[in-house]
């Protein structure tokens, strides 16, 4: 399969953008999903426990 330059450039400019939106929206949803909140809180605090050092 060979692509010419025009096609590749066009794919980059269109699907590239869609892909970017998906990654962005995806990571925001994941980070803000309510049920993840407690897990994140715990993770953030977990490193502060004494016995780590």
């Amino acid at each position: 399969m060979t692509f010419d330059h025009q096609t590749l450039a066009a794919i980059a400019k269109s699907y590239g953008l869609i892909y970017m939106m998906i990654v962005f929206v995806g990571s925001v949803i994941y980070a803000c999903w309510p049920s993840n909140q407690s897990k994140f809180d715990r993770a953030a605090k977990s490193i502060l426990r004494e016995d780590d050092e």
Binding site: D4, L8, Y19
Partner: peptide, 20 residues
């Protein structure tokens, strides 16, 4: 995946650049 798609999309067209 996330990292390489960015690179790929930007770089792939350059390997056909000889046409331009």
């Amino acid at each position: 995946l996330v990292a390489s798609i960015g690179g790929f999309i930007e770089i792939a067209p350059l390997f056909t650049i000889s046409e331009t």
